[in-house]
């Protein structure tokens, strides 16, 4: 007697799981997860904390990203996102070939700075041929030249308690009801002080082109491309970013992408 019950139960389970799977795939049951405040999404996002903890805690947190040979540069660096900012302040600087550009360094520092491109170029230079990985899935190898961010931060003398470097950018990436949304990004002090994290003013042996972020962009070689803010206007040392934008630490982060983009 027990056998038919077992098989019927098994049949029922098979049927139910089949129906459940086709409902998940075919319909839009899971589309609610697209909402940034969905509780299940919030729960799943904690896997990214685990990823960060593993990469920072278990793997070598000072490891260098792989560097390539000049022969590996086989094409121009593919630009993405905003490639030609139309903001007035930017256009004014661009028309004078960025001669009047000043990088502002402020926030939680003892010594706020205002640096011209010539001053930045006169600082220690690091050149690195690295692979740029876009969150979309593609990769492109280019040579970058710039001053290590750690050097600039040492000149500004970061105050105790500063936890993040916030990059303010010139470019409007989106126009919303409340006005222009400009690109911004944040990285923590581990990445900010990493030797390969540079404020790049040069690319592939020439001045940084406009589509790639002229006059100055950041390279954060162990993370995805969207962390590497282009068209940098100012650097601000902060102890948090919950009051900036939608509070998630960057333009794309505010739109659902993970803050830690090492994966």
């Amino acid at each position: 007697m027990p056998e038919p019950i077992l098989t019927r139960r098994a049949l029922l389970r098979a049927g139910m799981s089949g129906a459940a799977l086709s409902a998940l795939g075919g319909c839009k049951v899971l589309d609610g997860l697209s909402a940034p405040d969905h509780q299940l999404r919030r729960f799943m996002e904690r896997a990214n904390d685990l990823t960060k903890a593993m990469q920072r805690g278990v793997l070598d947190r000072d490891a260098l990203a792989q560097e390539f040979q000049p022969a590996d540069i086989r094409q121009p660096q593919r630009p993405n996102g905003v490639t030609d900012p139309q903001d007035d302040a930017y256009l004014a600087l661009k028309s004078k070939d960025f001669a009047n550009y000043r990088l502002q360094v402020g926030g939680m520092v003892h010594q706020p700075l205002s640096l011209s491109l010539d001053q930045l170029r006169a600082m220690p230079v690091r050149r690195q041929i690295t692979r740029h990985d876009c969150v979309e899935g593609w990769s492109c190898i280019a040579e970058w030249a710039g001053v290590p961010l750690a050097h600039v931060l040492s000149l500004a003398r970061v105050r105790i308690g500063a936890r993040y470097v916030l990059f303010h950018c010139f470019d409007t990436i989106e126009r919303s009801l409340t006005g222009a949304v400009r690109y911004y990004e944040t990285i923590d002090m581990v990445d900010a002080n990493h030797p390969q994290t540079i404020l790049a003013w040069g690319m592939n042996g020439a001045a940084l082109p406009v589509p790639n972020g002229a006059p100055l962009r950041v390279r954060v070689e162990r993370q995805l491309g969207y962390k590497m803010a282009k068209y940098i206007r100012a650097i601000e040392l902060v102890d948090g970013f919950s009051d900036i934008g939608r509070g998630r630490g960057g333009y794309w982060e505010d739109r659902g992408y993970e803050w830690y983009a090492g994966i």
Partner: peptide, 15 residues
């Protein structure tokens, strides 16, 4: 998943 174009959410669920 999701059914529309949503790379960010796809990545959250994937990881």
């Amino acid at each position: 998943i999701p059914s529309g174009v949503d790379l960010a959410t796809g990545r959250v669920i994937h990881f």
